[in-house]
Design a protein around this nucleic acid. Structure first.
Length: 424
RNA sequence: GGAGAGGUGGCUGAGCGGUCGAAAGCGGCGGUCUUGAAAACCGUUGAGGGUUGAUCCCCUCCCAGGGUUCGAAUCCCUGCUUCUCCGCCA
């Protein structure tokens, strides 16, 4: 959520910024609603003041043993009038909240213009794209040949977009997760966390999945509503919801492995082949809670932490700066890391690292106490995949394959594979 | 699942219809003392919002949502949640 004060003090700036995202902001409705809010709020508070003053007078009179009946008569009609005003105000505030919650974050200055992903900016490439002297297979064919990936079984047990991994490939995915957790905790200073895989509506609201993106979630329970987490970002970032974090504890750096569940509504027909887009996948997530002044630097570092995993695995990738139109709702700035997939002959997203600045923190009421002002102020939140484990598995299979359809285990993963160095 | 006891400011914890946004302690901040620090002592210190040029002032908040009342942290209902005991269980 954006700062409501910004809307009152510099509406033109807001309008200009939202325009970069091609977000249709209805300024007229906002102005009208804000005017009503002000009017009704002032009136309500005046009535409340009158009630308080008069009630206090009654208490005082009673204490002195005076007859309070005349005073009681004076307040008779106040109740109904006040209740009506309070109800009206609550309605307007709800309307305002709904309006504000539907507005995306303001983009960082460095984010390039552009309406869609073709306008994303490539910042650099790392690693050598493998040059095979045979026709490389994609992970689907490789997996079938190794009897380690079974999509039909996934569909039988659950539905399409689910998969069953078997034997060494299942272990390889676990090894990938282990390497990531070990690297981020031992080398990058993150604290490993284990969190619930279901989250309530307040948590989903805090990180911005609700109210706008409910269709992308799996709902696991009504009353209370519980949703399967689409990413560990949700439970982990909500650690600081409604908290005032001690300055000495900042930055908070969490790493968390979890399964992720996404309904993929609106993705019909896209990436239907293989493990690229599943309803359930494993991911290691990095989350940082930092002082506002530190978030840009933290964003660069966090992205580098994800890159380090790709480099340890010797997987060729490129780093993209997402353009205005491709940057997510809550994010001010996002880097995507795209890994080379020989089976597709293309770079595909394997990590997305975002700086949300105070956008999530405002909804979360996640704050720190600024010693300079003595006041609680909003923190900045960031997160990034470090990395998506399922897609890492695919990338390793496709980049480390040989002509016989075997998969060599990357050196960095050997300690986790129990002596296995080739999957065949 | 059954029984009981709680949920109050950054933290601990008192208040249990009316000058209570809330005692006390801890912590934080400022000061006295000190070469400096500690200790001691004194002072100060909740959050959000409205209005304002800025102060003043006003409103809301004692888990959440309803209700009773002129007036609710305090009484009533519902829900959530924590702890203890019993049962069940990976």
């Amino acid at each position: 959520m954006l700062d409501p004060r910004l809307f009152r003090t510099d509406l033109d700036f807001v309008r200009e910024q939202l325009d970069r995202r091609s977000f249709a902001f209805d300024a007229e409705s906002y102005i009208e609603l804000e005017a009503r809010r002000k009017d009704v709020q002032v009136k309500t508070q005046e009535l409340q003041n009158e009630r308080n003053t008069r009630s206090k007078a009654i208490g005082l009179a009673k204490a002195k043993g005076e007859d309070v009946q005349p005073l009681l008569n004076q307040v008779q009609h106040l109740g109904d009038e006040l209740k009506a005003a309070e109800t009206a105000l609550a309605g307007i505030q709800e309307e305002m909240e709904a309006l504000m919650e539907g507005i995306p974050n303001i983009l960082d200055e460095s984010v390039p213009d552009g309406k869609s992903e073709e306008f994303n900016l490539e910042l650099g490439r790392w690693g050598d794209v493998p040059d095979f002297d045979f026709e490389p297979k994609d992970h689907v064919d490789l997996g079938a040949g190794l009897k380690g990936i079974d999509f039909e079984l996934g569909a039988k047990i659950a539905s399409s977009r689910f998969v069953v991994l078997n034997g060494p490939l299942a272990r390889l995915q676990r090894a990938i997760i282990q390497l990531m957790l070990d690297t981020h905790t031992a080398e990058h200073g993150y604290t490993e966390t284990y969190v619930p895989y279901l989250a309530n509506a307040a948590s989903m609201r805090g990180t911005g999945q609700l109210p706008k993106f409910e269709a992308d979630l799996f709902k696991a329970n009504n009353d209370p509503a519980l949703y399967l987490i689409p990413t560990a970002e949700v439970p982990v970032t909500n650690i600081v919801r409604d908290e005032i974090v001690d300055l000495k504890d900042l930055p908070l750096k969490f790493v968390c492995h979890s399964p992720c569940f996404r309904s993929e509504a609106g993705a019909y027909g896209r990436d239907v082949r293989g493990m690229i887009r599943q309803h359930q996948f494993e991911k290691v997530e990095l989350v940082q809670i930092v002082k506002p002044e530190d978030s840009s630097k933290a964003h660069e570092e966090l992205t580098q932490h994800a890159e380090n995993i790709l480099e340890k695995l010797n997987l060729p990738y490129r780093k993209m700066l997402l353009c205005a139109g491709d940057t997510g709702f809550s994010s001010a700035k996002t880097y995507d890391l795209e890994v080379w997939l020989p089976g597709q002959g293309a770079y595909r997203e394997i990590s997305s690292c975002s700086n949300f600045k105070d956008f999530q923190a405002r909804r979360l009421q996640a704050r720190w106490r600024n010693p300079e002002t003595g006041k609680p102020e909003l923190v900045h939140t960031l997160n990034g995949s470090g990395l998506a484990a399922g897609r890492t598995l695919i990338a390793i299979m496709e980049n480390y394959q040989d002509a016989q359809g075997r998969i060599r285990i990357p050196d960095a993963l050997l300690p986790y594979m129990g002596g296995l160095d080739v999957i065949e």
